[in-house]
Simulated scan of single mutants.
Amino acid sequence: MKTATFSFWLAASSLLISTAGMAQKDGDLTNFPKGATPQEIGKRVADHFIASPHPNFGRPVPPKVITYPETCAWYGALTFAKVTGNKTMAKQLADRFEPLFGAQDTLIPVPDHVDYTVFGAVPLELYQQTKDARYLKLGKGIADKQWGPPEGKRVIPASHEFYKRGYTWQTRLWIDDMFMITTVQSQATRATGDRSYIDKAANEMILYLDSLQKPNGLFYHAPNAPFFWGRGNGWMAAGMSELLRSVPADNPNRPRIMAAYKNMMASLLKYQAEDGMWRQLIDDPTSWPETSCTGMFTFAMITGVKEGWLDKKTYGPAARKAWLKLITYLDANADISEVCEGTNMKNDHQYYLDRKRLVGDMHGQAPVLWCATALLRK
C-alpha cells in the first residue's frame, strides 16, 4: 500500500514538474504555481500598501506632499482591486484618499512638475470606479494644468519654448517623463471620454522618441546622460504600454509609437538575463539585477502579449520567467528588495552603478502591482 501511494505521489509530482516546464516554455500567462499567482502576490503587496503610512523616499519623517512612487503604487493597487473585483480593497484605497479632501489637503501636490502632476492618475482612477464627482474635478484639473501656460516657481525659459511648440511646459526630456505624462493623460481620456488628452500625450511621446531612443531600441536617460539606465527605460516601456492601451486607432502617431515600443521590446529580449531579470544598466553585464526595471519591463511585455501587439510564443516565456523570478525578491512582509533608489540624471556611468539598493521602496512595489493587474486582464 505504501509503495502504491509513493508511486502515485511520484507520478503526480512528475506531472506537475512537466506541466510547469511546459507552461514556462509556452509562455503561459494564466496558470502559475500556488504562491506565485498574480491574485496572491497582488493582494499581498496591495494589502501592505494600504497598511503603510505615506512614504517619503525612505526618510523617517512624513512627506510634505504625496510622492510620485506612492502615486504609482496607489494607481497599481486600485487597478488590481478593480480587475479582481475586490470591493473591500477598493474602499480601503478610497478611504486612504478621503483625508486629502479635508485636513490633509496640503498633501496634494501642486501640479507644476511631471513628478507631481502624475498624482492626478489616482483621483481619475477613483472617479472611474466610484463616479464620485470630487475625484473627477480634482484629477481633471491636474491634467489640464499640464497643458496650460507655464505657471509657478518651476518655470524656466525652456518651459515657454516647449509650450509655444504645442508641448507641455513641463517637458524636460528625461525618459521618466514618459510614464508621468502619459499615465495621467491616458487616465484623463479614460475618465472623461475626451481624446484630446491622450492625443496630446501621443504627440509628446514622439518628441521623446526623436530625442532619446537609440537604434537598438533603448533610451538614454537624457540627451546628456548617455546610459541605458534600467528604471528610466522601465518608465518608458510602461508609459508606452499605458498610452497604447488607450490611444485611438486613428491617431496618426500611433503607428510610430507602436514601432518604437516593439523595437524596445525586441532589444530587451536580448538583454534579459538567464534567470529572467534585467540589470541596473541594461547593457552592462557587470551591473546588478534590479527589480523596479524588471517589473516595468515585465508589465510592458505582459501587456503587449495580452493586447496582441507582441508574439506570445516569443514574449510570453520571457514575461513568465521574469514574473516568477521577480516575486522571489519579495520577503515575508511583501517588501521587494534590490530596488534602485530615486535617481537624478548624471553624465557618469559609475553614478548609476553606485545607487543604493533599497527594500520595500515604492519604486519597486508599484511595478509588481502593475504586473499582477496586467496578468489578470482579459
Rank of each mutant, 00 (worst) to 15 (best):
Q280D: 06
L269T: 15
A81R: 04
Q92Y: 05
K262S: 10
T106F: 08
L207I: 02
V359F: 07
K34I: 15
L330I: 06
P157Y: 01
L138Q: 07
P223I: 02
A36I: 00
L107F: 11
R357A: 12
Q187G: 09
S159Y: 01
P62T: 14
M1H: 11
M264W: 00
E341I: 09
L330N: 03
P99S: 02
G35Q: 02
A4Y: 08
M236D: 04
I50L: 14
R256P: 00
Y167A: 06
A20F: 06
T294M: 02
D210E: 12
E338D: 15
R195H: 12
T314I: 15
P38T: 00
K346A: 09
F162M: 08
R165E: 15
H363C: 13
D275N: 15
D354P: 11
A46E: 07
T30V: 07
T3N: 09
K313H: 15
D311F: 04
Q128A: 12
L310F: 03
F49W: 06
H54N: 14
P215S: 11
R256D: 02
Q129S: 12
L268H: 00
I181Q: 01
I257W: 00
A238K: 03
L269W: 01
N344V: 13
Q187P: 02
S18F: 14
S13W: 13
I257C: 08
I175Q: 06
G316M: 04
P223S: 01
N263P: 05
T37W: 03
I108Q: 09
G120K: 03
G217I: 10
T286F: 01
I175C: 11
F6M: 14
Q170H: 07
L10Q: 12
G148V: 04
S211P: 11
K34A: 15
E307M: 11
T343Q: 07
V61H: 08
M264H: 00
E242T: 05
T303W: 01
D95A: 07
L376V: 06
P109V: 03
A300C: 08
M265A: 09
Y68F: 14
L243C: 13
G304M: 08
M205D: 01
N56V: 05
Q39R: 11
L353A: 08
W278G: 10
W169T: 13
A225Y: 00
Y220H: 13
G316N: 12
L78S: 04
D115M: 02
L212W: 02
